[in-house]
Amino acid sequence: MAHQIRQDVWRALRSVRGFSPVVEITRKEGGLHIKAGGRAPKPIARNTVERIVSVLENPQNRARWVRCAGGLT
């Protein structure tokens, strides 16, 4: 799942020169906790966080990630 998320975040931010996405997944009661971000040389565009959030909150992305992970929760 982390690999799929990392790919999607990278695709959304591939225009950010030098961007390297980082994704961490931990099990929590009732599901998973996903922490995503990345590294990039400064200056970083102001909308970078919003672009990452839009990838993470996209229902179609979430459904695909769960399918690819074999239904893990």
Rank of each mutant, 00 (worst) to 15 (best):
V9S: 08
N58S: 11
P43R: 12
V22K: 15
A69S: 15
T73E: 13
V16H: 05
S20Q: 13
C68F: 13
V49N: 10
W10S: 08
T26Y: 05
T48R: 05
S15W: 03
G18D: 11
E29S: 11
W65P: 03
K42V: 12
G18L: 09
R6S: 15
R39D: 09
F19N: 02
R14H: 11
K28M: 10
V16I: 05
H3F: 12
G70M: 14
R64E: 13
L32T: 03
V22M: 13
V53Y: 11
S15Q: 03
R62W: 03
A63E: 14
A36K: 00
R64A: 03
Q4Y: 13
I52W: 07
M1W: 09
A45W: 01
Q60K: 09
G31F: 08
L32H: 07
R67C: 11
R67F: 13
D8K: 03
T48L: 15
K28C: 11
A63C: 04
L56T: 04
T26M: 02
E29Q: 14
N61F: 05
V23R: 07
A2C: 08
D8R: 11
P21N: 10
A36F: 04
T73G: 11
I25D: 03
A45D: 12
K35S: 05
V22E: 13
Q7R: 15
R27E: 07
K28T: 14
G30Q: 10
G30V: 09
Q4I: 07
G71E: 02
I25C: 04
S54F: 08
A45P: 06
R14Y: 04
E29L: 08
V16L: 15
V49T: 10
A36D: 09
G18H: 09
G18S: 12
R11T: 03
R14D: 08
Q7C: 10
L13I: 02
A2H: 10
I52S: 09
W65E: 01
R11Q: 10
G70Y: 10
E24A: 05
